[in-house]
């Protein structure tokens, strides 16, 4: 099972969470995303950092000052987001994303599709000893500017 770690930050209802995301297995793309939490994050400003009170949070009684708070689903420009956090006193010990919109998968996917073998540097066409070029060259004018045109001329 591949495992990617999302290092970007996600702002949800004022809480900045560092999430560890577990992507889908290679055989089940459409399965529900499983999102585990990063623990030991300290809330920036105590209880007020919990999901907005107007979101109708619920509090579960728990041992020794530990409680979980589930925020209502909040509509964002990308779709609904819903989080559940566990607090020990004023400290967030666990954060779970129950719902997130597909577009917030963006950072996850950047990790998932970042091929180690795929260099992010430019490759000089001259040094790469290529036989032909694939590129978005649709017209004969585009061809005149294309690497393919240079290759064809070099061969003559």
């Amino acid at each position: 099972m591949r495992r990617a770690v999302l290092t970007g930050t996600v702002t949800v209802a004022g809480v900045v969470l560092l999430l560890s995301l577990k992507p889908h297995g290679s055989a089940s793309a459409q399965s529900a995303p499983v999102i585990a939490s990063d623990s030991e994050r300290t809330a920036a400003s105590g209880p007020s950092a919990a999901p907005s009170p107007s979101a109708g949070s619920t509090t579960a009684p728990a041992k020794a000052g530990t409680r979980t708070v589930t925020g209502n689903a909040v509509d964002t420009r990308y779709g609904p987001v819903q989080v559940r956090i566990t607090l020990s006193g004023s400290r967030i010990t666990k954060a779970e994303v129950l719902q997130y919109p597909s577009e917030s998968r963006h950072d996850l996917e950047i990790n998932q599709y970042a091929l180690p073998q795929l260099n992010q540097e430019a490759i000089s066409a001259q040094s790469a000893q290529i036989d032909s070029v694939s590129g978005a060259t649709y017209t004969s004018q585009g061809y005149q500017r294309s690497l393919q045109s240079a290759l064809d001329q070099a061969a003559h």
Partner: peptide, 29 residues
């Protein structure tokens, strides 16, 4: 028009090498 179909080998023992143009860096792959 920038779309490639290749088969066999350009010289014996060597596969075809197709560069994919980098749209963010004109003239580079």
């Amino acid at each position: 028009g920038g779309d490639v179909q290749c088969t066999g080998e350009p010289t014996p023992g060597r596969p075809w090498r197709i560069g994919i143009a980098d749209p963010a860096r004109t003239g580079q792959l």
